[in-house]
Design a protein around this nucleic acid. Structure first.
Lengths: 356, 356
DNA sequence: ACGCATATTGCATACGAATGCAAAAATGCT
DNA sequence: AGCATTTTTGCATTCGTATGCAATATGCGT
């Protein structure tokens, strides 16, 4: 009756018996680089095939003390930027023979249950995107010897690496672009005010505006959230002296802001109002929006993240490393064009002041 | 010097020694429902706290033969529907004390390496979204006693459960709505033609149109992909006898189609062309699009998925179960309104023929 | 063919926690 | 207090694989 495959759970010992070798031989067959003769290897492989054997990763992890699992903590999946990151992460990690354990939701407070689980699975590394880690927890990771990489955010804390882009320069670039476009009244819709990306983007923006003599900036708080950004835009743009140039801290919000500006307030973009975003995420490229935006080099960012992780895992040295990449100001239709500085590079229009 | 915590890896035995009890006692302290006196439990807890002990999930899995990990295979993250699903899945699984191992990318062919890994980790269940499983692989899961649930797709194959919505009825409803709107020439932009969702949506659409005497349907192939949908729309809508009513198999494509219709072909929506989508995903609600679309009850779908999985895991019985939910036709601005049948329910407009 | 170097193999043990079983302790009852 | 019952505890074993070590087999040179 049950002559067939039983509830699976074929073990290396069973394969060994079948192949007439020791369990060690089976193990060695499936361990790259282990000492095993082609002859026995073949016998083992044949037996394994017949029984449908697959090494048990759990048991292997237990003894090697390597789970080959990377934990990714990510909230804020409504912003397409992060799903894109996730997809690319999956691609790269699988290539490195790692698995991706996903935790959605935030883990800000200390002693978070998510963190507990994360530690229980003895993950080999942690990637934090759109989330931060309390100082206590990051310390714990360090002492546990687990590398942590912050993705698209950074911190002064030791022992935690990060991958970001030059947000300050990005903010500056946007300011320069808008100034060159002849705008006079500037606005900013912020992300989460305590986040490093928001701070830096705004700092650069403000700095460059100030240098050009523009000290007043209308500010609304969007918290990287559609609804809040809409509310902020509604308020800011219905003022009589509303800005004619608006930097929205990311594209996810910029899309919402554009809809409010156009359809609730009847403003023409870019005639009445120029909008610039950040990230260069999918919808920014859709014709309805065509957002002029600072791009973040997603693939290279993910690559750097995986790279840091792999380095720290294999070396065992957890030294905080900070990779900072640069993006480009992608010029589309949501903002007035400056007279000079827009160049075309294989089909994409980019703002590079200095070059015509 | 290193009097502090060492490279972590605190074991239950260490805690036991510290607390002056046996390793079993420690284990029992952390096993809900195990026989342990409050007194010793407290001693153990104290020792665990001091040493920073956390049960090793890997070791636990090995002996309990339960990994408490669910594999989620998901491609197509550009379609916001899936990130939303992922987020909700994460929420629910964590509530059930399960972890989510994410595999991105497809696994259509047999003997896929992804599948191998999946089996190696002895996951307790598998959720397949936007991917299918070859017959060989699904059999293997069955014999291995691993429950599999197809999300938003289905199959005739035994032993594989599924959660879907009434796609056929959805297609019918859309046809009825468009007919009631007074349209005369109908079009369809398909998803992946072999997918069950696409087949069913189209079947219902075609059926209802035929019943009303509309036998001709212009068809374009979109493969659930933006670029392909754009190309298909471009071609279909530049014909002299182009449709005035177009059902696009999902919102992800519908958005692209609207942009092509409006900005490349200069069509007014819904005056020149009505567009109806499927899913009711984020961008469908954005003012720029305002897509009239069949909603899929995402939360309830995810709930059903987790529910099936938990049931099969705890009972050990893997009997294919098919949950079929229904959505509503959300009425917005991308399609002409019929004279009757649109009702308003807490702020949302829905098409319910028969009711005025 | 012999001896030595090298490649393979099997044995035994370890990884960290869960659990059946029997011993020990605590509790209840008269 | 004394006995029966229940609760708590520790011992020993188990899960499936990897690996150091010693034993055995293979290959090479002369």
């Amino acid at each position: 009756m049950d002559s067939g495959v039983k509830k699976s759970g074929v073990t290396s010992s069973q394969v060994a018996r079948r192949a007439g070798v020791s369990q060690s031989a089976v193990s060695r067959t499936f361990t790259p680089g282990a000492s095993i003769s082609p002859k026995t290897r073949e016998k083992v492989m044949a037996a394994a095939q017949e029984l449908g054997y697959r090494p048990n990763a759990i048991a292997r992890s237990l003894i090697t003390n390597r789970s080959r699992i990377i934990a990714v903590v990510m909230a804020y999946l409504e912003n397409l930027f992060y799903p894109d990151v996730l997809e690319e992460l999956g691609r790269l990690l699988v290539k490195e023979n790692y698995r991706l354990l996903l935790f959605t939701g935030h883990m800000d407070r200390d002693s978070d249950p998510v963190f507990d689980q994360l530690m229980q699975y003895r993950v080999d590394g942690i990637i934090l995107a759109s989330t931060t880690l309390s100082s206590h927890l990051s310390e714990e990771c360090a002492t546990a010897g687990i590398p942590v990489v912050l993705f698209n955010r950074t911190t002064e804390r030791d022992a935690v690496s990060s991958v970001t882009t030059r947000n300050r320069e990005g903010g500056r670039r946007i300011a320069e672009f808008l100034i060159a476009g002849g705008h006079r009244r500037f606005g900013y819709i912020s992300g989460v005010e305590s986040s490093s990306t928001n701070r830096d983007r705004f700092a650069g923006y403000q700095e460059a505006l100030a240098e050009a003599g523009h000290d007043e900036i209308a500010i609304g708080v969007g918290n990287y959230d559609r609804a809040e950004a809409e509310a902020a835009a509604r308020e800011m743009l219905s003022q009589p002296n509303r800005p004619d140039a608006l930097f929205v801290a990311n594209d996810h919000m910029a899309v919402a802001v554009m809809d409010v500006a156009r359809y609730e307030l009847g403003l023409s973009i870019p005639e009445d109002l120029s909008i610039v975003g950040y990230d260069d995420v999918g919808p920014a490229r859709w014709t309805s929006y065509g957002i002029t935006t600072m791009s973040q080099p997603l693939k290279r960012m993910v690559e750097a993240t995986v790279n840091i992780l792999m380095g720290q895992i294999s070396s065992g040295e957890i030294e905080a490393e900070h990779r900072i990449l640069s993006g480009e100001l992608m010029v589309r239709t949501s903002a007035r064009l400056p007279k000079t500085g827009v160049v075309e590079i294989d089909g994409r229009r980019i703002y590079k002041p200095g070059k015509s």
